[in-house]
Design a protein around this nucleic acid. Structure first.
Length: 573
RNA sequence: CGGGAUGUGGCGCAGUUUGGUAGCGCGUCCGCUUUGGGAGCGGAAGGUCCUCGGUUCAAAUCCGGGCAUCCCGACCA
């Protein structure tokens, strides 16, 4: 049966909604796909649900193809399971909590590693049952501090999460590759432009992980990519090419300068310009940031035009706890002069010196003199101070050389649509996930976990597939293949429905606009809704001629009605 | 969690400065006309002005508390 607009809940808005900003959000609301129920919580209307179902279908087909078995857990998860893995504290306020009438605590699952691990621990006991891939398509709940951009970042969202269980590392690698390939096929089928980038494992633990990013200005992630080779990484995880080793230039012995009122990098550059003949920039200054590592001070050195990325530092020094060295910490260490710290002599004070790769041996710097209102010039790495450890803790910038081939990297924004991890045995250890091996002895299972945001994919595709008139869905995601627009009142509506039924019989999904409305309204709505093929049944309908338009290209041609099917399906192939 | 803004029929907004009958456009319903690019005329329905309290003869408007929503940042698979 064709969908007749006159009998369906399809309401488009003439004006942009006031609370929507990014294109996908604005258009999904305006074209009648979704409605906001609360901050970060959305209702899927019939039109939107079709798109969501299409994305889910593609995801399921590709998961089934790699041997995934679908299950469905409850969104309600007993709180104790999150206690066991320590993620209660990790997630904190992000968890939606629920208490039942008996006082038992639940959380609305923000992700389901725990439940999958428990299931497999309980049900699987032999190596013969592995490898195993389980997945579900389920709502996830995260009480984000700031939901935004509509379904792009909701507090409730639909996600496919899958988990692989293998006996050994080779098996895990193979399950990981299978998922990677499945995700590629999913993105390809959805018509999504995407990149696979190296990622940081973050709160999930585990080792190797990659993200599937859909480039878009509305995205919240930043990634670097190389236009010359295939290097790409989330800025959180990007490595940086080491600089050429500095020439062992003959630099005068370090010289201490009086620099009143210039504790910061910018202040210091201005002070040099005003009083010391200038000639230095931020990049010539050695930025010395003090952190507390398990409470003890550590100096981290980066060039003055760079920032230390605290997240990366924490990741590099884990499991040690990294804190910002605050005023009270400085008060307790009078030998560390806030604003005038330099690496010279730190070894003697028992303070480790960590440095970015750019602080190469032999490079000369302007830096703090460890004395109030004094800086030092000509301080040379390897001569005036030693670096205890080289760390990669600086966020990459545009034009950074590619670590693989040296070309200038580019930086872009993107939407994270998928993330795949080789988890290893983190959860298996917590839940004692063992199977009996061929020799009758228990083997600890190794896991992978793989997530793809189904509802977010809808928004990501919308972000990449729209123009000033509205949405323009790729075939596989579109709520319908064909949108028949009946114009005129000389039986066009009946003709359109009849033509629509023939197209449906041939396997196409068809929407017919048989509403009593002016041509302008119907044509504008068709473009707003964004079905790929728009067929106008209008003034030449009586002679059997209709107009077939392509939503994306805007091209149109008149055809006999009985040629429409061929014209549309040919284009699809 | 910091900063900014907003809250008035279904949607978009004006009205708040200077307190005094709640308005406009779109949408919706009825009738007639109209049908290839958001039609015309006539009629109609629909509002606790976010909420609670205060000031006042009188509050959408002034004052205070609260709530909600959006944007920037922090956070965040």
């Amino acid at each position: 049966m064709v969908t007749r607009m006159s009998a369906t809940l399809h309401r488009t808005l003439r004006e942009d909604p006031a609370d929507a900003d990014v294109p996908s959000h604005r258009l999904l609301i305006r074209a009648g796909y979704v409605r906001r129920a609360a901050a970060g919580v959305y209702t899927w209307l019939p039109l939107g649900l079709r798109v969501l179902a299409n994305v889910s279908r593609v995801v399921r087909e590709e998961m089934d193809r790699i041997g995934g078995q679908e299950v469905l857990f409850s969104a309600l998860v007993p709180r104790e399971h999150y206690q066991a893995t320590g993620r209660l504290a990790e997630y904190g306020d992000l968890l939606f909590s629920v208490r039942d009438r008996r006082g038992v605590d639940f959380v609305l699952g923000p992700t389901h590693e725990e439940m999958f691990s428990l299931l497999v621990a309980a049900e699987v006991s032999s190596y013969r049952e592995l490898p195993l891939i389980l997945y579900q398509v389920q709502h996830k709940y995260r009480d984000e501090a700031r939901p935004r951009s509509g379904v792009l970042r909701g507090r409730e969202f639909l996600m496919k999460d899958s988990y692989s269980f293998d006996l050994d590392d080779a098996g895990l690698a193979s399950s990981y590759r299978a998922h990677r390939d499945a995700y590629r096929r999913i993105c390809d089928r959805l018509g999504l432009e995407y990149r696979i980038v190296r990622a940081q494992s973050g709160a999930m633990g585990g080792s190797h992980s990659e993200e599937f990013l859909a480039p878009s200005p509305s995205g919240e992630d930043t990634f670097v990519w190389c236009p010359e080779c295939d290097y790409a990484a989330n800025t959180e995880a990007a490595t940086i090419a080491p600089p050429a080793t500095a020439d062992p230039v003959r630099v005068d012995p370090a010289e201490t300068l009086h620099t009143p009122g210039a504790p910061g990098i910018g202040d210091l550059v201005r002070y040099f310009d005003a009083h010391l003949g200038g000639g230095i920039g931020a990049r010539d200054i050695l930025k010395c940031v003090v952190f507390g590592v398990d409470g003890a001070p550590v100096v981290v050195l980066v060039p003055g035009d760079r920032e230390v990325d605290t997240d990366r530092l924490a990741a590099a020094l884990a499991p040690a706890k990294v804190t910002v060295f605050g005023p009270e910490d400085f008060a307790a260490r009078p030998d560390l002069v806030r604003g005038y710290v330099g690496p010279q002599g730190m070894a003697g004070r028992g303070v480790p010196v960590y440095a970015d790769q750019r602080v190469a041996s032999g490079s000369a710097w302007v830096t703090g003199a460890n004395r109030y209102e004094h800086h030092a010039r000509g301080v040379v790495a390897g001569r005036d101070f030693d670096v205890d450890r080289v760390l990669d803790v600086v966020r990459p910038q545009p034009d950074e050389p590619c670590p693989t081939c040296g070309a200038a990297l580019r930086v872009d924004r993107a939407i994270e649509v998928g993330h795949i991890f080789q988890l290893g045995r983190k959860y298996a250890d917590v839940f004692g996930l063992d199977v009996l091996g061929p020799d009758g002895r228990p083997v600890r299972v190794t896991m992978g976990c793989y997530g793809i945001g189904v509802s977010r994919l809808v928004a990501a595709v919308a972000e990449q597939s729209h123009d000033e008139r509205g949405l323009a869905w790729p075939e596989e995601v579109a709520p319908y293949h064909v949108h028949l627009v009946a114009l005129g009142r000389a039986g066009q509506a009946a003709q359109a429905v009849a033509l629509g039924e023939r197209l449906e019989a041939a396997g196409l999904r068809v929407l017919v606009d048989d509403r009593i409305a002016s041509p302008g309204v119907k044509l504008t709505d068709a473009e707003l809704i964004g079905v790929p093929h728009i067929v106008v049944v209008g003034r030449r309908a009586a002679e059997g001629v209709v107009e077939v338009r392509d939503r994306r290209s805007g091209t149109a041609r008149e055809l006999p009605a009985d040629k429409v099917l061929a014209a549309i399906t040919r284009k699809q192939d």
